[in-house]
Design a protein around this nucleic acid. Sequence first.
DNA 1: GACCTGCTGCGGACTG
Length: 813
Amino acid sequence: MTEKNILAWFKKQKWKPHVFQMETWKAMLAGYSGLINAPTGSGKTYSAWFGILLEYLQKYPDQKKTKPGLQAIWITPIRALAKEIEYSTSRSCTDLGISFSVAIRSGDTTAGQKAKQKKQMPELLITTPESLHLLLAQKGYPDIFKNLSTVVVDEWHELIGSKRGVQMELALSRLKGLNPDLKIWGISATIGNLEEAKDVLLGKYESPTKMIRAKIVKNVQIETIFPDVIENFPWSGFIGTQLLPKVIPIIHKSQSVLIFTNTRSQAEIWYQQLLETEPDLAGLIALHHGSLDQNTRTWVEDNLHDGKLKAVICTSSLDLGVDFSAVDTVIQVGSPKGVARFMQRAGRSGHSPGALSKIYFVPTNSLEIIEGAAMREAIKQNVIESRVPFIRSFDVLVQYLVTLAVSDGFEPDVIYKEIIRTHCFATVTKDEFLWCLQFITNGGNSLQAYDEFYKVEIEDGIYKVLSRGVAMRHRLSMGTIVGDSALQVKFLSGKRLGSIEESFISKLNIGDVFWFSGKNLEIIKVHHMEVVVKKSTLKNGKIPSWQGGRMPLSSQLSAMIRYKIDNYLANKVNDDPELNKLKGLFELQAKRSHLPTSKEFLIEYVQTKEGYHVFMYPFEGRFVHEGMAAIVARKISEIQPITFSIAMNDYGFELLSDQEINIEEALSLDLFNIKNLEAEIQMSVNATEMSKRRFREIASIAGLVFQGYPNKAMKTRHLQANSQLFFSVFEKYDAENLLLKQAYDEVLDFQLEIERMRMAYDRINQQSIILKRPIKPTPFAFPIMVDRTRSSYTNENIQDRLLKMKAQFEKDS
DNA sequence: GACCTGCTGCGGACTG
């Protein structure tokens, strides 16, 4: 059995291996580590898989007699993908007559299967980052990995920008420590920082590395769905069902459609309205998002795979995963927020190499139409976002150290040398590492009085967990994904439908009806984190919303939007029907105020019956705007005592006050000349409050708070309260706590996007400021104003209201 | 006059 046989097999399959695949095999056989960059549907799995197989055949030509144990590990970020990899790898073994066993190890793996694996590991183990760490927490784990020669990390672009990526780096550092010859291969879709992605994955070792790029062009065609009359299209809003009548014919003429929405509630709304307008589609369309029960989701995936569904309305839950070859059309509803995401979604259709991926873009408000043109330009210019890797994530490090202590225990010196070879922990000093050791042995400076934090003990210099209880709890809470605890929705029969948030259900009573999982449901009772429901015959129910993550518009896409406005102003509208369509709106913006070129920075000052508004439009995504708005507000309040309420969206922000604002004077202060951005932020933003919220995740990953046993989730407010308690204790007694510092750093890096803010300030300082005083709010301003009124029940506004009431009271008396 | 925001991912095994 040689390479020849494999090539012959390919021939039999009528499949000619691509150059990049052969390149990969060669590099793997020559002992390289590396990163493969290939689009989905190009055969990237086989590129790495046959490398593994060929090496195995070379090492053990007589494979039928030898049982060398675990040869390779294949990491996938989601379980659904594991099944697909298992299918294609084991099928090719059967076809080729090679004795090479393949098995999955994930949360789905039964105890029996695990026991079997323990006796005899397969040659290829397909697993997740979390399950790999669980293996590292087993007694005698080095034995499992002793013959391991290759680790493949699939979809590395998905992991690199998250703490799961950090977890991966740590596991690899250990495996590399056990076996210095270990080869590591990543597979990644195109991202802006591929070279960095490779370096982060492979760590700092001497071994030779290679980047392999499949030069396969993915043709993406974007078609924006327009309203007939732009004048009737709303200026704000994010649901977009106005255009539903135009989406229906697309569904009918397609074989199978994926409709991506940005939020779970939006998916529910679209599903509901689609059924209402087109009852014939009942049974042919389905819903898929992260809060639906796993069984429902699997059913949808299977039927989509088999081509039995005409359309599925989904969220990012179907961004990744199984190959849905039946899908020939993709629709994106609302802003795609970023180029990479949009490309990923577009790629879910037209799966064969070289095939055209067509994606329809359905804008949900007028201004958003421009994003269709911006996206087309980004793809033309090949502009794509980077995924920034985490650094110095001490929460993950602390968890990892306990993991190793749960197994056979570890020697600190050995592990320190390994972790500083990772990208994430390269700058960790000996002292910082000692801090981590202390933290896991006695809780650090402030928790020494509580023995529950004496998790790890030292025996002959080896750090070990001796308590079975600590070990069990640790195994249960491994991983870096901290979910929001939610209530389970169930029928009386016990059938699960999915989960919704406490805050939503608390607004309803027994007997009320809500729409969820594509059904109208009546509440029978709520107890023990469960909502028991029955089907309702009522037509209308409230639709739940979930407090998920908020994704800002990417800076690449923002830049393209500014560029497209320039194009419009320069009359270069030929390639983009979007710009033609926006003519009326842009003319109104120019008439009432001004349409800024990319060399201009527009500020609008408007008086309405609500008060005095200042609008600014950096077009830099809502996170940056949040920070900028706070800084501008503070600077203005230095010249006149004034309070503002602040609102923002992805295009700009608003400061509103009931007092007149001396905007000229404020501008003369050089509002945007920032010398020390970090200091400005500290003075303007309530960083402590933001960090406190951020700390919940860190406390959970670091094992400070226990999330509860499976299926017995703790209430969100308990978790929140516990982590806040630790936060306050550390603030008071342990200011040097590395986890505390990490919370502050994460707020600056991810919540306020400080680097991006810095670039935005640099740009604004190059621009000329255009101040306009429109009589009425402009098309740019309107969506931001609406955003503010919508959130009028936040604490901040209650405070405002109280103040107003107080003022009123003073006036009356 | 325009309004139904807020994603995804994972998950015990030891001892008798």
